[in-house]
């Protein structure tokens, strides 16, 4: 028995995706599809993702790299005649795909997003140098040296303009109440996982 155009996946999205209960309200006007800055690189623009969810195409949606193309520009949100929080739904879908291990392998934005989070979760603040070096070395050491060399002029310029601190590698910014901070994030994650059924 086919499951297409039934509510199963839509229901899952409503439960597990940030602002997912809005998906059913899309009226398929296509305004969002025409609003993404990286529009040409979306295999399925938001409008289509919403229809796919309603059509029950779980696998296709969650393995897609479309929602990883979202720059969080909020252009769609202010234009959508139905006022869907599209940006958050994109984030939510990306999060669900990531949590289920379905997001495409080597999705750079996904990697960067994780790195960013881990970076901030450690110290409470983002360490820009570690973050950027991490990004360059994400594909392994050799490629990392190449990436870093390619962007060397940028990095040096930033150091010269006192906008990148090489000393950050050994500490740098961070908050004081790290233990409270960590406990807070742990709790929040726990509540969220329970609510969204992530074991």
């Amino acid at each position: 028995m086919s499951e297409n155009y039934r509510n199963n996946f839509l229901k899952e999205v409503e439960e597990r995706v940030e602002e997912g209960h809005w998906v059913k309200m899309c009226m398929q006007c296509g305004v969002c599809a025409g609003s993404c800055p990286l529009g040409a690189h979306w295999a399925h623009p938001p409008q289509e993702l919403f229809m796919m969810i309603r059509a029950g195409k779980r696998e296709e949606v969650l393995t897609s790299d479309s929602m990883w193309m979202c720059t969080s520009c909020y252009n769609c949100v202010v234009r959508c005649p139905r006022k869907l929080p599209i940006t958050h739904i994109m984030h939510g879908l990306a999060n669900l795909a990531y949590r289920l291990g379905l997001s495409p392998k080597n999705q750079t934005t996904q990697k960067f997003a994780s790195m960013f989070w881990n970076n901030l979760a450690q110290t409470g603040r983002v360490n820009e140098l570690k973050l950027s070096l991490g990004m360059y070395f994400k594909d392994g050491f050799g490629q990392g040296i190449k990436n870093a060399m390619a962007m060397q002029s940028v990095g040096l310029g930033m150091v010269k303009a006192k906008r990148l601190n090489p000393m950050e590698l050994f500490g740098g910014h961070g908050i004081k109440d790290k233990s409270g901070f960590h406990a807070m994030l742990k709790k929040a994650r726990e509540i969220e996982d329970r609510r969204k059924n992530f074991a």
Partner: peptide, 14 residues
Amino acid sequence: SIGYAEGGELPRIA
């Protein structure tokens, strides 16, 4: 606006 993949919803709000 990039913390979402790992961070999810409530941790970000927190």
